[in-house]
């Protein structure tokens, strides 16, 4: 088992799949010779060459259009959108075209493609380079949505996304790129649509995603050590398909649900989970559902402000102690 960074796991997954399948191609801005602005694609250009790892102009519509057109005609493209905020300039191709093509054509078209993007805050980049936009994708029928929290999940889930016959939006949390973790040796392919239970506890179930997962884990340790509260932590990993079986089971066990979401308040993925819980396991609950989110504001840049807005381990502990203890 090797220790890899989250960013190294990205390149490992792409390389693994490109070695296996000639139809896998990769395109985006600065991804080739430069190795990506987050250095998440280093080495791919050298190994696979400019025909399979193609640098593009700053043309997000052209990037995603090329991905769609090549996917429907037999390739398996991976497109990088440098920052997820930039999805707003090519959202037509995502929401109106890629997501709807199969359904609208009565199943005539396949769209085996992956859109990778650096998502989320914590890097002091300000409101146009820090948004957590996985909810934009989650609300469009026809898109699979994945957001890993660890290097092993990056590798396994990205490989699974590349092999998946449907379009997958793959949200890499940019503040996680430097984190390290053990990744199994050899070929690694995970399963989309599966949540993971990272910690077992009997008092409360914390459901978190991407960068909120390590914070939830830290909070759980603190709750145990300082407050005698034992938390289960569930890493959602995949918003679509959503592993409701695992999530609901773990909530039913403790009777309490806390979602930890990086997104601004309204229409966060946690609201959907809260709604499912209210519909299906309401009588298993022992108290109100708690949603911990970023406030409904554009994310500020300064470290003091950004740290105060995104959910932190301290805030998770505080809210759980105040509302559950």
């Amino acid at each position: 088992m090797a220790e890899l960074t989250y960013r190294e796991a990205v390149a490992e997954a792409i390389a693994q799949e490109m070695r296996r399948d000639e139809d896998v191609v990769f395109l985006g801005e600065d991804i080739g010779a430069a190795g990506g602005v987050f250095k998440a694609t280093v080495g791919l250009f050298k190994e696979f060459g400019p025909e399979r790892v193609r640098d593009t102009p700053i043309s997000e519509q052209a990037i995603l259009g090329a991905a769609m057109g090549s996917a429907m005609t037999g390739l398996k493209p991976i497109a990088e959108i440098m920052f997820s905020d930039f999805l707003a300039v090519c959202w037509d191709i995502v929401a109106n075209e890629i997501a709807k093509a199969r359904y609208m054509t009565g199943g005539q078209m396949s769209m085996p493609l992956v859109i990778r993007t650096a998502n989320g805050g914590g890097s002091r980049f300000g409101a146009q380079h820090s948004q957590s936009v996985e909810n934009w994708a989650m609300m469009i029928p026809g898109l699979k949505v994945v957001a890993p929290s660890s290097p092993a999940d990056v590798k396994g889930l990205l490989a699974a996304a590349i092999r998946d016959p449907d379009p997958v939006m793959f949200f890499e949390q940019k503040s996680l790129y430097p984190i390290k973790g053990f990744v199994p040796d050899g070929e690694l392919v995970d399963e989309l649509g599966t949540a993971k239970v990272l910690r077992d506890g009997g008092d409360v179930t914390i459901v978190a995603l991407a960068a909120m997962v390590p914070r939830a884990m830290k909070a759980a340790e603190e709750l145990s050590a300082q407050h005698g509260i034992e938390a289960t932590v569930v890493d959602v990993r995949s918003l679509v398909p959503l592993d409701t079986q695992t999530i609901l089971r773990e909530i039913s066990k403790t009777g309490r649900l806390v979602t930890v979401e990086e997104n601004p308040r309204l229409c966060g993925w946690g609201a959907e989970i809260a709604s499912i819980v209210a519909d299906e396991i309401f009588w298993d609950l022992d108290g109100p559902i708690i949603r911990i989110t970023t406030p409904h504001i554009p994310l500020p840049a300064a470290d003091a402000l950004e740290d105060a807005t995104m959910p932190s381990a301290e805030r998770i502990v505080r809210e759980i102690v105040e509302k559950i203890d």
Binding site: Q61, I63, A66, M68, G69, S70, Q108, M109
Partner: peptide
């Protein structure tokens, strides 16, 4: 749309299909 005839779709958002057609051409080139 009639994929069996190579009619790869009618696109109702102005401009969208130019990049998409370009992507199909990428497949042919690749």
């Amino acid at each position: 749309t009639s994929v069996e005839h190579g009619a790869m779709g009618s696109y109702a958002i102005i401009g969208a299909h130019l990049p998409i057609a370009m992507g199909a051409a990428w497949t042919a080139q690749y």
